[in-house]
Nucleic acid binder design. Structure first.
Lengths: 177, 177
DNA sequence: TACACTATCTATAAAGA
DNA sequence: TTCTTTATAGATAGTGT
């Protein structure tokens, strides 16, 4: 974002990509930290390269600082109530987050498959898909076919209804010849 | 970050806080999106206000775009291998992230308690802590006491050893008078 | 309350060490 | 390659509607 407008696409050059990752990762973590401090929210950022299993996460130990800072700002009576509920509250939020994660993954997979379907129908072959993906794709295509057939049926029905109406209309207007 | 340098602390004014949250949340999500697009990583951001159970997450539907963009950049043979492993890979990464989350929560709680302990010993009272936290604090204090006692024992032992050595030294040098 | 504006602050791309 | 520097793109605090 300096000296040039960024082209928002994958950076092909490996070292440039690594440098950008390092800088922007730091920036993102800082932003998450600031947001949680300023606005009384829990923010969490996870960054993981695709080739290793070592995701970087925020909050780290710095996380506790803003929690305590926030806590100290509350009226004392609220502090007490808050503390009582804290554990169950956190547990609920974790569950909610995990549910959302699962939902997102499922949704993403479906969209991925839809995209793959269009790609394949658009000239690409199926040779690079594995069995699991092919079966997913199969299901997706069948579902689409069913939808299409249902629509055809509806259109047929509409047309025949329309014809009937027209016939009735003609009869009523005495236009039968 | 405009018209004034931000004071990095909780914003007391509710409407100002809400406005900032909205702006910065959008910013953070955008940054996460950019990072994942530019650098071939999976980034995830979760923001949840403390008073509701509706966390905002990224990636959303835009997430799939960069995944596919990335996929297309790979040599075709790698695409195949990658696809085969994708499912198990993602599952492993989720497990890893969940483990990290749990670990972080535990660590944060411990630090929180340590901080509370110092606060209390430093003049504040215990009246605003609930039973669960008091029990945690109790355990923490006992642990610390044990550590202290152990260190005292070691010091005692060292001193008696030292005395013995001194006595031996005096004997060897014929300094007994 | 929720937007739009914009002066200013912050993040960072590119270059240099 | 990684750290430092610097010019500029991008984010946003305060303000007005």
């Amino acid at each position: 974002m300096a000296r040039k407008k960024v082209n928002l696409a994958y950076i092909a050059n490996a070292s440039a990509r690594k440098a950008t990752l390092k800088k922007r990762k730091k920036g993102l973590m800082k932003k998450a930290n600031e947001l949680s401090t300023l606005c009384d929210v829990d923010a969490c950022a996870i960054i993981s390269g695709p080739h290793d299993f070592h995701p970087d996460v925020w909050p780290s130990d710095s996380g506790v600082k803003h929690v305590i800072a926030r806590f100290k700002k509350m009226p004392e009576l609220q502090q007490h109530t808050k503390m009582v509920n804290q554990e169950s509250f956190i547990r609920q939020r974790i569950n909610k987050a995990e549910e959302l994660l699962k939902k997102q993954l499922k949704e993403n997979h479906h969209k991925d498959m839809t995209h793959v379907m269009y790609q394949c129908l658009n000239g690409g072959g199926f040779q690079y898909l594995n069995m699991v993906d092919l079966m997913d794709l199969d299901g997706l295509l069948k579902q689409n076919l069913k939808d299409i057939e249902r629509r055809i049926e509806i259109l047929k029905k509409d047309r025949s209804d329309m014809t009937t109406i027209n016939e009735i209309g003609r009869e009523q207007n005495g236009l039968n010849d």
